[in-house]
């Protein structure tokens, strides 16, 4: 499909906004918006046009509890961030354990099995000369970014509070640029930044509160000026991958 065709992009954007673009076609267009200014601008234009249709809908007051839940979620996020900043110093392990949800035995068994599977997968996909910090892997969600030659570049290990990212020796190090990690949530057009990726070694990123496997359509890496995206959107998408749930 020729994504440089303005008419085609306009119609895809119109059906995306209308909602009739569904399934894989919708996911493809969401990915296209990551890299195509034409697609993003066409979508914004149709949103401005078609959302005028909503003027015919009379407001209906939601229940008071909706606002209470929103406030709670926002406040919880603030608390969660505070917890992370404290535990990252490695001085408050007791406090960290207090805020962890209690795990059932079944969950613990599953967690152990997932850890083993996780390590096995990591060992298979990772062909770096440098051994992985296996003791760090406790999660059941992983992502591996590979280049065109299928060489692994980054391994992302998803943990309760953090994303542990390890850069591979295969990664071409750029001193004039940074690499930024993004998630694209299902049904949403704007990618969400997850932070800058390491150019070597291991880096811990704070896990975004909306990082939930079931909500994520895609993960992406973009090439950015030093310091990260200046616009809040990816500048040049280099790689995309799926989140693997074990």
């Amino acid at each position: 499909m020729n994504y440089n065709n303005q008419k085609l992009i306009d119609m895809l954007a119109a059906e995306f906004v209308l909602g009739t673009l569904r399934g894989l076609a919708r996911d493809r267009f969401t990915r296209l918006m990551l890299t195509s200014t034409m697609a993003r601008e066409a979508t914004w234009k149709w949103e401005q046009h078609l959302n005028n249709l909503a003027s015919s809908i009379e407001a209906v007051a939601p229940d008071q509890q909706v606002w209470e839940k929103i406030s709670q979620r926002i406040d919880n996020n603030v608390v969660a961030l505070n917890i992370q900043s404290r535990t990252s110093n490695d001085e408050n392990n007791t406090f960290k354990e207090e805020v962890k949800k209690p795990k059932s035995r079944l969950l613990q068994a599953w967690s152990l099995a997932a850890t083993v599977a996780c390590i096995a997968l990591a060992a298979i996909v990772w062909q770096s000369k440098t051994p992985l910090p296996i003791s760090n892997f406790e999660s059941s969600q992983l992502a591996v970014f590979k280049n065109e030659a299928k060489a692994p570049l980054w391994l992302v290990d998803v943990q309760d509070q953090n994303l542990i990212v390890k850069a591979s020796a295969s990664l071409e190090t750029r001193t004039d640029k940074d690499y930024e990690l993004w998630m694209i949530l299902k049904g949403q057009d704007a990618p969400v930044s997850l932070g800058l990726l390491p150019k070597d070694g291991v880096k811990t990123l704070v896990r975004n509160s909306r990082f939930k496997a079931e909500d994520i359509a895609l993960l992406a890496v973009s090439l950015e000026p030093l310091g990260g995206s200046p616009t809040g959107s990816p500048t040049e998408v280099l790689y995309t991958t799926d989140l693997v749930v074990l």
Partner: peptide, 27 residues
Amino acid sequence: VKIWHNASDYQVSKGVVLSWMISIVRY
């Protein structure tokens, strides 16, 4: 919750504020 987290992503080129918010709830 998305609007709270992404308020800084809004740009005038994305349309009027209400349209931007409508898109978020529709999607």
